[in-house]
Amino acid sequence: MIPFDFIYCRPDTMEDAYQAFVQLQTEGKNPYYYAGGSEIITMARAGSIRPGAVIDLKQIPQCRVLSLDSEELHLGSVCTLNEVKESKLFPLLALACGRIADHTNQCRITLGGNLCGTIRYRETCLPLLLADASVTLFGRQGLRTVPFTSVFDGRMRLDAGEFLVQVHVPRKALQAPHYHIKQTASEKIDYPMVTVAALWQDHFLRVACSGLCAEPFRSAEMEAVLNAQNLSGADRVRKAVELLPQPAYDDVEGSAEYRKFVFQTILEALLEEVTHGPL
């Protein structure tokens, strides 16, 4: 039960969505873009947000795209995690989607919602960070397509009123050897203690991580160490754990020290795999 009222809009075009947002914003309605809804509904029920309006993006054709062309995979922002997973077009992203929340919720939670929401794990970002993805956004100046990393630094940095339309993944990354490991406190259906995704591309191991720090990250320094041929596996892992971009996260699910320990054991397993294939 959400105790307060809000306005519900379901535009058919990107322009209408943006115009509705601007209009409602001007009216002081505190509008939210809405896709799968799970985060907005739970937070509204709990009283942590109070939107005066929600703008449902699910009818906008451009946001629903799921297609592969000769260059890239295009994923609309309102594609559900389950649709992305079942399409099997980007196996690493499929693995990430398949471990977020539970299957029923995967049929509702959208790619855009996972990336743009406030729940800090945003695990679908990991494959995108590794794959040199780009994103198309719609805002004040209409459409713009930019590298994912230019608008994502652990969370989405969008202009006011701007929303995510599509994600584009270069074909090259789609079938690259990859690795995805998610460890939880104990129950499988849970937020990550640590999730590590890795992609082997151009003889280089790319690694991104969620859960470990306050926000997900991919770190060039850490990757350099992990790829350092002159170091032993154990040394690489030890140095990598020292290179966290932010302090390890500490909350009711797990302590900072333990998260670092989990990260270390995952990296050890990862390097072991890299050495022995299939990467």
Partner: peptide
């Protein structure tokens, strides 16, 4: 294997919901 009511130092129970308090699935 996984259940405990966790309280902070002030005695406030942390995350009393089934998102964080996990039962066996």
């Amino acid at each position: 294997s996984r259940e405990a009511a966790v309280y902070d130092e002030q005695g406030i129970v942390r995350a009393p919901n089934l998102r964080t308090y996990k039962l066996l699935h």
